[in-house]
Simulated scan of single mutants.
Amino acid sequence: MSLAEQQAKSTSLDNTPHPSVKHCTDTVNARYTHGRPDHELVPSRYVLKVGTIEVTVVSDGVLSLPGAMLGHNADPAVREAWLEDKFLPPDVLEWALNVVVVRSGGRTILVDAGIGAEFPDLKRAGQLVGRLDDAGIDLSSVTDVVLTHLHMDHIGGLLVDGVKEVLRPDLRIHVAAAEIKFWEAPDFSHVSMPPGFPDALRVSAKRFLKEYRNQLRPFEDEHEVAPGVRVQRTGGHTPGHSVVRLASGGDRLTFAGDAVFQVGFEHPDWYNGFEHDPEEAARVRVSLLREMAANRESLLATHLSFPSVCHVAVDGDVFRWVPGPWEY
């Protein structure tokens, strides 16, 4: 049985989906049925170059969550108006799940790992293992993993049955030391998540840290993973949240993880429900978007619509999302 087939048969940590996660999924599936066939309608990978660095964006699927998650401190009427203006339903936000594979200096670097197979009711998410295989990317070729943070939709793919056995024994997993410390006793006092999500996040992070402790390569503020590939701690979303900066031949690109969501361009002061320090997350978001606008580099992020390649423009006191031209 292939690793992709093993993933399809995997279930949650205790073989039972968390009831709150299942309720959210059932509600979404009942109201927003797309009638998609089993095969993919669009490509799930996109390749671009940053100088001599090769970047492959891989879709782990899409995760449906309550619309309030994109700005729980906003006036509900204003939030619903923004969703309507974007031709989106008022109460459900479909978050893309983007993962990046970077090749530089003879190293193959997986940046984040998707949500995995922990929640079998999330049928349109957790596709990473199969889609890496479709893209011709062998897990055994991965030399490094960079984790922007330890939320379950960024580490779950490493917890899929059979994955660890395929990965290299000398694999290096780069994650901020502050992130590791945070998950020893995580603080959820400032989040606004659906019930059950804090418990699910705790369980996933605890299991990950236990299973991969020997592969962890913690860094303090910044670390060069490969030529032109740096990981830099920003904090905010979580204390150790980090971004990945690529630079080669005058080209630059930043993978922003969860620092930027679609609504963050027009409403950078809106608090995402999964931010552990919303005020700091807003400051990080504004600073990052200002930098992106000033130097005109490309931006990728986990939850921007696949393949998420874009630029940032300043529009008065806020920002404007400018989709990057498709590289045929």
Results as ranks from 00 to 15, higher is better:
170 D>W: 06
190 H>G: 03
270 W>K: 00
97 L>I: 15
26 D>S: 09
270 W>L: 01
218 P>D: 03
272 N>I: 10
246 L>W: 00
282 A>P: 00
66 P>T: 01
177 A>N: 05
105 G>F: 02
159 L>A: 12
249 G>T: 09
322 V>F: 05
293 A>C: 13
323 P>K: 13
48 L>D: 14
223 H>I: 07
247 A>E: 08
239 P>E: 04
254 T>P: 02
235 G>T: 00
263 V>H: 06
89 P>H: 01
18 H>D: 15
272 N>L: 14
223 H>G: 07
228 G>S: 05
189 S>L: 10
25 T>M: 09
277 D>E: 13
106 G>V: 02
43 P>K: 10
326 W>T: 14
60 D>W: 09
42 V>D: 10
22 K>I: 11
316 G>F: 02
182 F>L: 07
30 A>Q: 12
173 I>W: 01
284 V>D: 01
219 F>I: 12
19 P>C: 03
160 V>I: 11
57 V>G: 12
49 K>T: 09
305 S>I: 10
12 S>Q: 06
220 E>N: 13
123 K>Y: 02
301 A>F: 02
188 F>K: 11
36 R>I: 15
189 S>C: 14
125 A>D: 04
191 V>H: 03
111 V>P: 04
250 G>F: 11
170 D>V: 14
34 H>C: 07
287 S>R: 15
188 F>H: 08
243 V>R: 15
198 P>K: 11
85 D>N: 08
302 T>V: 13
44 S>M: 12
274 F>K: 02
